[in-house]
Simulated scan of single mutants.
Amino acid sequence: MDYSLEIEGTPESVPGGTGVLLLHPSTGETDRIDTDFLKTDTDRFLVVSTRTTAREVKQKLEYYDVDESRADILDTLSIERGYSRRSGDHVHYVSAPDDIDGIVLQIERFLDAHEGKRRISFDSVTELAYYAGEENALEAVTRIYALLEEYDAIGLFHLSEEVHDDAVVEAFVDLFDGVIDLDEDGTVDAAF
């Protein structure tokens, strides 16, 4: 199945199983691209957050007018930081942002539980690498990518290119079908 993309410079649509890497400066404004990705042509979406809590993800979705009734959120921070958390049908938790097996399992459960067009936003791979190490982050992305292909879903993965050395950035770029490069001034270049 094909998925529409409404992000500047990208193809009009991509096939299921596609992964897109969003390269951005560490100060870059990624929310606009992320929410454009999530609100277009989708039945359900999962936001995997290693950078913010579920509450902050909900605030972002509300601010950008994304239909929260289609959302699931995987919060990797709240348990480790000791924040209070309210479990709900659509908010899930893992013990820590370096719990790669837990993250991959929750993504698989989400994909298995929902039909139709499913999107995953992983915000952010850079934070995952900070907690779990770059090699483990590469392995996690590879495993998640295999799930996208198996379940005919698509994903957007955030990576701050300023934080990693060039070889690491290239290793991530090589995994993906498409790369969106967001400059500090908001300019978008995409290659698919």
Rank of each mutant, 00 (worst) to 15 (best):
135 E>S: 12
83 Y>K: 13
107 I>S: 11
116 G>E: 01
119 R>P: 05
91 V>P: 06
124 S>D: 10
86 R>Y: 09
88 G>E: 14
147 L>F: 04
98 D>M: 06
143 R>Q: 08
119 R>C: 08
128 L>S: 07
127 E>I: 01
84 S>N: 13
130 Y>R: 08
85 R>H: 15
81 R>E: 11
92 H>D: 06
125 V>Y: 07
107 I>R: 00
124 S>F: 12
125 V>D: 07
92 H>V: 00
123 D>M: 05
94 V>W: 00
134 E>R: 11
147 L>C: 07
99 D>Q: 09
119 R>F: 11
125 V>M: 10
118 R>T: 07
98 D>R: 06
95 S>F: 02
99 D>Y: 09
103 I>W: 07
105 L>S: 11
124 S>Y: 05
116 G>Q: 01
119 R>S: 06
87 S>I: 09
126 T>Q: 03
80 E>W: 04
110 F>A: 02
111 L>H: 07
96 A>P: 03
140 A>G: 05
129 A>S: 13
108 E>Y: 00
144 I>G: 07
126 T>N: 04
144 I>W: 05
122 F>R: 00
87 S>L: 14
98 D>A: 11
138 L>I: 05
85 R>G: 01
109 R>F: 06
122 F>L: 14
90 H>Q: 10
101 D>G: 12
141 V>D: 05
121 S>I: 12
100 I>Y: 03
121 S>Y: 12
121 S>L: 15
133 G>Q: 02
120 I>P: 08
106 Q>C: 05
112 D>L: 13
143 R>L: 13
123 D>L: 03
95 S>E: 13
78 S>L: 12
109 R>S: 14
83 Y>R: 09
95 S>H: 10
118 R>A: 14
116 G>C: 00
77 L>D: 03
106 Q>S: 12
139 E>A: 13
142 T>P: 00
94 V>N: 01
81 R>I: 01
145 Y>Q: 08
113 A>V: 04
116 G>L: 03
140 A>F: 06
114 H>C: 03
131 Y>D: 10
106 Q>D: 08
90 H>T: 14
91 V>C: 08
121 S>D: 13
137 A>R: 11
93 Y>E: 02
141 V>G: 03
107 I>E: 09
132 A>R: 05
130 Y>K: 12
138 L>W: 00
112 D>I: 04
90 H>W: 09
101 D>A: 15
126 T>M: 04
94 V>L: 01
